[in-house]
Amino acid sequence: MNVIEFSQVWKSFHRAAEQQLLRHYIVDLFDGADSNPFYALKDITFKIGEGECVGVVGSNGAGKSTLLSLVTGLAPPNRGEVKVKGRVAALLELGAGFHPDLTGRENVILNASLMGFKRKEAMNLYEPIVDFAEMADFMDEPLRTYSSGMKLRLGFAVAINLNPDVLIIDEILAVGDQAFQAKCTEKILEIKKAGKTILCVSHNGSTIQSLCDRALWLDHGQLMMDGRSSEVVPAYEGRRAASHA
């Protein structure tokens, strides 16, 4: 069974997206908007089956984040079709909606509600989340007193406990100190063993190669290669080394 399915997906951003003042908008209307779209993804087709662990590699601006925004349902494609089954948890959403004036506890509950937890799940998982983050002593302090590492740990703890069908990891293994990183990696491997689908995005080939069996290589919005990570990653790194030389 396919969990993620992209068929001939195109995604564009129009270049004037930064100009939102009224006069720009009017000028755009008369010019005929979107005369010069920028395609972040061009004709992407792939399928990911249940339980697969797939890495996405590519340099900056290759379209990796755009791909993730389509998988999580944040944005619709311009052309083509995106199908995703089950509950998606994206570790790029760490701490979305966190507010500095709320306490750690209030932030965890708020974050849980917008990550898609039911109220009961959120209450039941609150203790495990705090335990995982190792922050039980600070939960009644406002978030603005936390270090950035503490915020990330808390966000990671909520996301990883969502028990998702699809887990999306975006350059995230740099959370916290080494011990916490090891704990995160262990948790991710546990999720992988449980037969969940994992999509892992990085510009660092070795992370992908150690975690994923299969890899996709994106370059300037195009799918260059789709195959075993032991073949795709060296090809991507060879190309990158060549372009730097």
């Binding site: 349902g73 509950r87 909606g97 507010h99 004036d101 709320l102 209030e106 509950i109 708020l110 509600s113 917008l114 990550m115 898609g116 937890f117 039911k118 109220r119 959120a122």
Partner: peptide, 19 residues
């Protein structure tokens, strides 16, 4: 998104009010 609308709405309202 397959979450709990009411729970989410309530969390957002309380967030606004508290801050």
């Amino acid at each position: 998104w397959k979450g709990d609308y009411i729970f989410f709405l309530e969390s957002m309202v309380m967030k606004d009010f508290k801050i």
